[in-house]
Simulated scan of single mutants.
Amino acid sequence: MANQETSTRRSIITMLRTEGPLSAGDLAERIGITEMAIRRHIATLERDHLIYPTTIRQPMGRPAKVYQLTEEADDLFPKNYHALMLDLLDDLVRVDGEDKIGQLFAQREERLVQQYEALLAGKSPEEKVAAIADLQNSKGYLARYEAKDDGSFEIIEYNCPIAQVSKHYPQTCSCETNVFRRVLGMDVKRSECLAEGGKSCVFKVSRLEQAAE
Rank of each mutant, 00 (worst) to 15 (best):
A28M: 06
T44P: 01
L50A: 08
R62W: 08
L22P: 07
T70L: 06
V66I: 15
P21R: 00
D26P: 09
R39L: 03
T34N: 13
L22H: 05
R47V: 00
Y67R: 11
A43W: 03
T44R: 08
T18M: 11
L69N: 07
R40G: 13
T54N: 10
D48F: 06
R39A: 03
I13Y: 06
S23T: 12
I38F: 09
M36I: 08
S23R: 00
S23V: 05
T8C: 03
Q58E: 13
I42G: 09
T18C: 04
L50P: 08
L69V: 04
I51K: 05
I38A: 10
A37C: 04
A37R: 15
T70M: 00
P21Q: 08
T34C: 01
I12F: 05
G61R: 14
Q58S: 12
A43I: 08
I38R: 10
E35A: 04
G25I: 07
R9S: 06
T18I: 05
T55E: 14
L69F: 02
G20E: 12
P53S: 06
V66G: 06
R30D: 08
P59F: 10
I12G: 07
R39P: 01
R57W: 02
E46K: 15
L45F: 01
I56D: 03
L50T: 04
E29C: 03
R30P: 02
R57D: 08
G20T: 12
R39T: 09
Q58T: 15
I33F: 00
D48M: 09
H41T: 05
M36V: 11
G32Y: 11
E35N: 11
I12C: 04
D48T: 07
T54C: 07
R57G: 10
L69S: 02
R9F: 00
P59M: 12
P63N: 11
T8S: 05
E19H: 11
I51G: 07
G32I: 01
Q68V: 01
P21Y: 04
P53G: 02
D26Q: 07
L50K: 08
Q68R: 12
H41P: 07
I56A: 11
T14Y: 06
A43K: 15
R17M: 07
H49Q: 13
Y52N: 05
G20I: 09
R57P: 05
T34V: 00
L16W: 09
A64Y: 01
T70Q: 00
Q58N: 05
L27H: 14
I38C: 07
S23I: 04
R62S: 12
L69T: 10
R9V: 01
L16G: 09
T70C: 04
H41M: 01
G25R: 13
I33D: 09
T55W: 12
M36L: 10
L16P: 12
R40Q: 15
G20Q: 13
L69Q: 05
T8A: 02
T54W: 00
P63R: 11
T14E: 10
L69P: 06
I13L: 15
S23F: 08
A37E: 15
I42M: 12
T44F: 01
Q68Y: 05
D48E: 15
T54E: 14
R39C: 00
T34Q: 06
R39M: 06
P53D: 01
G32K: 13
Y67S: 02
